[in-house]
Simulated scan of single mutants.
Amino acid sequence: MRSSSLISFTPLLPVALLALVAVGVGVAWLGRLGHARAVVTACLRAAVQLGAVSVVIAGVVALPAAVAGFVLLMYGVATFTAGRRITEGRGWWWAGAPIAAGTVPVLAVLVASGVISTKGIVIIPIAGILLGGCLTATTLAGRRAVDELVQRKGEVEAALALGFEPRDAALEICRPAAAQALVPALDQTRTVGLVTLPGAFVGMLLGGASPIEAGVVQLVVLVALLAAEAVATVVTIELAVRGHLV
């Protein structure tokens, strides 16, 4: 029996995974959530993608060009995913702007300050964390902003009649709702160590780091993620009020 210190690779591992998938599908179906099939496909994709990524990362971490290409691939997938969720296929590429605006400056600060090294084994996971956070923030902010602007079109027109500029009128309607995209990141940062021990902290501990070192790493990740998501949210709202996402 092999162990990663967190889970044991026993013969029952596949059985446990299948049972958990079945629970997710069963609950989604019985609760009529409309996502029973999506649970299956998401789990299958996760298994295939993680297996492929594990193999690819092992071969690219030592090559700077390959690392850059892999990060760009992650960025492209994040852009497509967020854009499709927000615009239903129309102008999905606009989602790339907030994701890049949030990820690039924060990653640059971390590298320029020497907080993280330029080794591929470090850049890839940190970039992935930032891209994932910006993907979530962009998707949530974009969907909330678009929904508000469509459903409350009359209120936007009323603000225009009162003398508001088009951008200001749209902002008054959609910004409060779209800003809620930051709530998950804020809650995660506020409750870290009290409710959950995030992945970076646990990973450092399993890798042999002291609890203090693991705590510092996790703090850097959370603060960087919150900054990146804040930028992504603001840029997403700006794109929505300018009509690029509606």
Rank of each mutant, 00 (worst) to 15 (best):
G132V: 03
L160W: 06
T139P: 02
A170T: 02
G154T: 08
P125D: 10
A169V: 05
K153A: 15
A141I: 10
V195D: 12
P184K: 08
R152W: 04
A169W: 03
V192Y: 02
A185Y: 00
V183W: 08
G133L: 03
E155V: 06
A185T: 04
A158F: 08
L131C: 05
G142S: 11
I124P: 01
R144S: 12
E155C: 04
L149P: 07
Q180M: 13
G142I: 07
V150W: 03
V146L: 10
A145R: 03
A159E: 12
A178P: 04
A127I: 07
Q151C: 08
E157M: 09
D168K: 15
A141K: 08
A177N: 03
T191S: 14
A127E: 08
L140Q: 01
E155M: 11
P166S: 12
I129N: 04
C174G: 00
T189E: 06
L197D: 06
P125T: 06
T136F: 10
T191Y: 13
R143V: 07
C134K: 05
T138V: 11
T189V: 13
L194A: 13
P166K: 12
A137L: 12
A185S: 11
E165K: 14
G199M: 09
V183E: 11
L197K: 08
V183D: 12
A159Y: 15
E155P: 02
Q180H: 13
D168F: 14
G128F: 03
V156A: 03
R190E: 09
V195H: 11
R190L: 14
R175D: 08
G142T: 09
A161N: 11
V146Q: 06
A161T: 13
A141G: 09
I124C: 00
D168A: 15
A161C: 12
A170C: 04
E172T: 12
A177I: 00
R167V: 15
L162D: 10
R175N: 09
A145V: 05
L162Y: 03
L160K: 08
T196Y: 09
T196R: 01
P184N: 07
A177D: 01
G142A: 12
